[in-house]
C-alpha cells in the first residue's frame, strides 16, 4: 500500500538520509514513479521528457513539472520538494477511495492503547455521577441535569480559578477590579421576560469576555513577532521645527 511506502519514504527523507535525495538516479526514478503511479499530472504520452531520466535536459523537465503542479517549493531544497510531492501523492490516493480509510481499525486500536487512565472510566456509572455531584457541591458549581455538563463547568472553574497558572496570576494582580453592576448596563437587547433577559445578558457578557481573551492572544502574537522585527530609531539631526 502506498501509505506505508510513503511513511517509509517520508521517514527516509525526514531523517535527513541525504543518500536518497542526493543519489541522482534514485531521486529521478522516484519522481517518475510518483508521476506514473499516483500524481498523474501529465497524459502518458506527455511524460516522455520526465521519464527520460538519463537525459541532460531532465532537470529542465523537472522544473517545468513542478511549475505545472504549482509546487510552492519549486525553488526549495530537494527534501522539501520530495516531502511535498509525497504529500500530494497521499492526497490523490486518499481522494480516490476515501471510504476505505474511513475507519481504519488499526488506527483506532493504536489510540486506545495509549494508556490514559480516564479512557477506562465508565462515565455513566453511578459512582462517577455521585463523584461529580460531590465535586460540584464542594466547588459550588450549579448542577445541570446532564452530569457531564456539570463536569465541564467544574473543569472551567478549576482551570480559571484553581490551576497553578490561575493561582499565580491571582497573586500578581493587586487590583481586584470593579464588580460589574449588571442592572446598570445596557446590553442592547430588548427582551420582555426578566429571566430570559438576564440570561441573555450573561451570555452577552461571557461573549465579550471570550472576545477579550482572543484579543489578548492576538496581542501576544503581535508582541512575539515584534521581538523579531522591531528596531525603532530616531535621529534628532533630522528634526526641524517649521515656522
Amino acid at each position: 500500500m502506498l501509505t506505508s511506502n510513503k511513511k517509509e519514504a517520508i521517514k527516509v527523507v525526514k531523517s535527513g538520509d541525504t543518500v536518497f535525495v542526493h543519489n541522482e538516479k534514485q531521486f529521478r526514478s522516484t519522481i517518475v514513479w510518483l508521476e506514473d503511479q499516483k500524481v498523474r499530472r501529465y497524459k502518458i504520452e506527455d511524460r516522455e521528457s520526465l521519464r527520460n531520466t538519463t537525459a541532460e535536459q531532465w532537470n529542465q523537465a523537472f522544473e517545468q513539472y513542478l511549475k505545472d503542479l504549482d509546487c510552492p517549493f519549486a525553488n526549495g531544497s530537494r527534501p522539501e520538494i520530495v516531502d511535498w510531492l509525497l504529500g500530494l501523492a497521499v492526497q490523490f490516493e486518499f481522494n480516490e477511495k476515501p471510504e476505505s480509510y474511513a475507519s481504519s481499525p488499526k488506527i483506532q486500536q493504536q489510540t486506545s492503547q495509549q494508556s490514559n487512565p480516564l479512557d477506562n472510566l465508565d462515565f455513566e456509572s453511578e459512582d462517577f455521577q455521585v463523584g461529580v455531584v460531590e465535586l460540584a457541591n464542594l466547588l459550588q458549581v450549579p448542577r445541570h441535569p446532564d452530569h457531564l455538563m456539570t463536569l465541564e463547568g467544574i473543569c472551567n472553574v478549576i482551570q480559571e480559578k484553581l490551576s497553578q497558572d490561575a493561582l499565580k496570576e491571582a497573586l500578581k494582580t493587586k487590583n481586584p477590579g470593579n464588580p460589574v453592576q449588571f442592572e446598570n448596563i445596557s446590553f442592547g437587547l430588548d427582551i420582555k421576560s426578566p429571566n430570559v433577559s438576564s440570561a441573555a445578558n450573561v451570555l452577552r457578557y461571557l461573549f465579550i469576555h471570550d472576545l477579550r481573551d482572543l484579543q489578548t492572544k492576538i496581542n501576544e502574537c503581535l508582541v512575539c513577532v515584534q521581538a523579531l522585527t522591531a528596531n525603532p530609531k530616531t535621529d534628532t539631526k533630522l528634526g526641524k521645527v517649521g515656522f
Binding site: 530609531k233 530616531t234 533630522l238 526641524k240 517649521g242
Partner: peptide, 8 residues
Amino acid sequence: VGSKGVIP
C-alpha cells in the same frame, strides 16, 4: 508648517 520628523 515646514517641520521635519526625527524618525529616519
